[in-house]
């Protein structure tokens, strides 16, 4: 099944690479423009479950890598569809029309990495509270500096009593 699927994908999408890093793992590297059609094709092939969307910050190459994890319900094969987007003005199309549960995953990645998903109606903050800094999962965000700036600046109430 795996080899057949590989031949099919490479026949339709000319600029994609298909690899097998392990048993039952399949990596499809593709371009940003063809992500919607390739996901639709895979869904028609039986990969009906979107497990997660993850994001990697490749800061030296100035790129974000978005990984869409797909799985069929009746076989152990796990597909990772990878696309690369630019780090400046990171933007890509939403996949809400194909997988509805992507709504929360996209919201989370928008909050933690700052990637914009065009067409997603709700990209409001999910975990963070009163956040005005860089998105925290970016590699150039300095957590130690942020901690010093926000948490360490707040004075202790009990110490104030002892002094006066």
């Amino acid at each position: 099944m795996d080899e057949e699927l590989k031949r099919k994908i490479e026949k339709i999408y000319k600029d994609t690479e298909v690899e097998f890093p392990e048993r039952n793992r399949m990596v499809v590297k593709t371009k940003k423009a063809s992500i919607l059609s390739i996901l639709e094709f895979l869904k028609r092939e039986g990969f009906r479950q979107l497990k997660a969307i993850s994001c990697v910050d490749w800061i030296k190459e100035c790129e974000f890598e978005l990984i869409y994890h797909l799985a069929p319900l009746n076989s152990p094969l796990h597909i990772m569809v990878k696309i690369r987007i630019e780090r400046k003005n990171a933007e890509t199309e939403t996949i809400l029309k194909i997988f509805e549960n992507a709504k929360v995953y996209e919201r989370e990645i928008h909050e933690l990495f700052g990637v914009k998903f065009k067409g997603n109606p709700d990209l409001s903050p999910l975990f963070l509270e009163n956040w005005h800094d860089l998105p925290p999962f970016r590699k150039d965000f300095d957590t130690r500096k942020y901690v010093k700036k926000t948490f360490d600046e707040i004075p202790s109430v009990e110490d104030r009593n002892e002094r006066t």
Binding site: T143, Y146, F151, S156, V157, E158
Partner: peptide, 14 residues
């Protein structure tokens, strides 16, 4: 040094 964890809780409640 986590960005989202409270360090000293006695600053906010006794």
């Amino acid at each position: 040094d986590s960005y989202n964890t409270i360090k000293h809780i006695d600053k906010y409640i006794p």
